[in-house]
Design a binder for these strands. Structure first.
Length: 584
RNA sequence: GCGCCCGUAGCUCAGCUGGAUAGAGCAACUGACUUCUAAUCAGUAGGUCGCAGGUUCGAAUCCUGCCGGGCGCACCA
């Protein structure tokens, strides 16, 4: 049950009746009519812009239209009072009863409260992480992993059929470098002194284990052989080991993918030739020579005839090569094949979560999706900006060169996965994020993870104490969901209930905008409402949650507290975070 | 030189797809602890929403042009 959506439907129904009765012209578009909580709660519970957005098309004055609509809304059962304000807002106050009944609704639904059928079961593919299998995950990868994962959960919660997908780039040159690097470690594991890892190879120590593992499996069978002999096998082995390493990192983060797609498999199955054929048939490619990039011509630039995709026809800045001058396919060609493959698997809706360094790749990929799906598919790209890792305000250097870069695993070990997950979601993806290893563990209102978890723990603690102080109370969710909450009437209680009722609406708007971070801010505000209410009991003992001499009121308050803890838990669930029952 | 992203209180950031007098936290100041865990709460103060135009009933939000910061810019993946 979504109070706001429900009321919006009622408003639109009234508008339709008004069209029938001739009060307003028929055939107006009501899609822009909204029903939302006003910024300033003194304006009422719900505000609608109907009169303002319809005034022009109806050729009426906003306030006149508002007066007509307001008169009708006043007669609705759920509406307590109506007033017209400002340029034509209609501010509604609902019957308190309606709000309080929502507590029962929340308790009956439990963690499913806020679930929606907005997505109508439509398939959505969320591709994220997709880190090259050449090393352990870094803090930068983690942001994408968490944003993608939370977005996927969010979309599932609002009714989409979500596939979480990881695209393994196991076909390019970098996996050959990986194989070479692993081979060095293999020789080392067999007792050879390989000295310093030469430039052009991956120096990371994680490859030592890969070398040893290869010895354990194959002994010295690749020693002294030609590169062309060992390369394919060592490459295959190393990729498998690295994917395994990445999967363990993801598991430590609580991320589980539905599908790992292999670029190599796609290429070997002829996916690229197929997409090339498609492009040719649809006249989407031609042979041409690109201009040098303006203002910054590379020293070795020379005009080269290449097969180019007409991405400028679809909003890109220049046409993009799908074939290198030697005739081999570019990475982009493979990526086109991959997206065509996704589409053919039934995904019209595709979302990719990328790192900041891929910003320049968005337009061409969107152009490709539009072209390959003949306008049927859509691709939204969420670019995650950089994460600055700090320790008490000081930059922590992340140098891949020296090999001692900070891995995701290091950070999880230090602060815990739930903290990492929450913090990564406290900023919109397209703004850069400071991650301070000291601050995220601080126990203060300044730290949203703590503050939200504390609200949940406090709710649990209150419920536990109520049971101790009034043993006759039945505080099970089932029992509480059926009780009459009309005894609740303080401002703080009603404010909290209204906040809880915004949850379904928030989920839908966050889902629609593909912005999971909004949940973090909502939870922070919700926690604030609960903490504030709790402290009011200090000034006025009658506002304490637990009143030993008033079991009926206590019971109603426990229903509210339980409902709050459920919504917090439900929000944390979307984030893949375990709510805590006590702080230590 | 081009493209994308960011610019909101001293600091860190929200701002619900164009709504009302732009909101939180931190820091500052005032107040509340033998507690239903004060790890919290209530209040005060703090703003030319980078700048300049434009679109309209209405702009932090959309458009254009500047300024400042980040990222990326031929066959690499």
């Amino acid at each position: 049950m979504n109070v706001f959506k429900d009321l919006r439907n009622k408003i639109v129904a009234q508008l339709e009746e008004m069209a029938v009765s001739g009060e307003i012209p028929s055939g107006l578009d009501f899609s822009r009519v909204s029903a939302e909580p006003p910024r300033d709660s003194s304006h009422g519970d719900i505000s609608t812009n109907a009169a303002m957005v319809l005034a022009k098309p109806a050729a009426m004055k906003p306030r006149d239209l508002a007066a007509l609509l307001a008169a009708r809304l006043e007669n609705l059962d759920v509406v307590n009072s109506v007033e017209i304000a400002g340029p034509g807002f209609i501010n509604l106050r609902l019957e308190e009863k309606l709000w309080l009944e929502q507590i029962g609704t929340i308790l009956k639904s439990g963690l499913a409260y806020g679930n929606s059928d907005m997505g109508q079961g439509e398939k959505v593919n969320v591709e994220y992480v997709s880190a090259n299998p050449t090393g352990p995950l870094t803090v930068g990868h983690a942001r994408g992993a968490i944003v993608g994962d939370a977005l996927a959960s969010l979309l599932a919660k609002v009714g989409y059929n979500v596939c979480r997908e990881y695209y393994i780039n196991d076909a390019g040159n970098q996996v050959n470098v990986l194989a070479g690097s692993a081979y060095l470690r293999y020789r080392e594991a067999l007792g050879e002194d390989i000295g310093e890892i030469p430039a052009g190879f991956y120096p990371g120590e994680y490859l030592i284990d890969v070398g040893k593992a290869l010895v354990a499996r194959d002994g010295d069978k690749w020693l002294g052989k030609e590169e062309s002999v060992w390369l394919p096998e060592v490459r295959k082995f190393a990729i498998a080991e690295l994917i395994d390493l990445i999967k363990r990192d993801l598991a430590a983060l609580g991320v589980v993918m539905d599908l790992y797609s292999s670029e190599r498999e796609l290429v070997e199955a002829g996916g690229v030739e197929e997409v090339a054929k498609f492009l040719k048939e649809h006249n989407l490619v031609y042979t041409g020579v690109l201009e040098p990039p303006k203002g910054k011509t590379p020293d070795d630039w020379e005009p080269r005839p290449q097969t180019l995709f007409r991405s400028t026809d679809f909003g890109d800045d220049v046409d993009r090569p799908i074939q290198k001058s030697d005739g081999s396919w570019t990475y982009f060609a493979g990526d086109m094949a991959y997206h065509l493959d996704k589409y053919r698997r039934g995904f019209k809706n595709m979302i990719n979560v990328w790192g900041a360094d891929h910003g320049g790749y968005i337009k061409r990929m969107q152009a490709a999706v539009t072209a390959l799906t003949e306008g049927q598919g859509s691709l939204d790209v969420k670019v995650c900006q950089l994460v600055n890792l700090l320790r008490d305000g000081e930059m922590v250097r992340m140098s891949k060169r020296s090999g001692n870069f900070v891995t995701l695993r290091d950070v999880i070990d230090e602060v815990g996965k739930d903290v990492v997950r929450f913090i990564m979601l406290t900023r919109k993806n397209d703004a850069s994020l400071d991650f301070d290893l000291v601050k995220v563990l601080e126990q203060s209102r300044d730290n949203p993870v703590f503050y939200v978890q504390y609200a949940h723990a406090r709710a649990c603690s209150v419920l536990k104490n109520a049971k101790l102080e009034i043993p006759t109370l039945d505080l099970t969710q089932e029992k509480l969901s059926g009780i009459d909450c009309s005894l609740l009437n303080s401002d703080g209680e009603l404010a909290l209930v209204r906040k809880l009722c915004e949850w379904p609406r928030l989920l839908e708007s966050a889902g629609e905008a593909h912005e999971p971070h909004r949940i973090a801010f909502y939870l922070y505000e919700l926690a604030g409402e609960l903490h504030g209410l709790w402290t009011k009991g200090k000034d006025d003992a009658s506002l304490r949650f637990i009143l030993v001499d008033n079991p009926a009121l206590t019971e109603a308050r426990m229903a509210l507290v339980k409902a709050t803890s459920l919504v917090i838990a439900s929000g944390l669930d979307v984030f893949g975070i375990e709510p805590v029952e006590e702080m230590r």
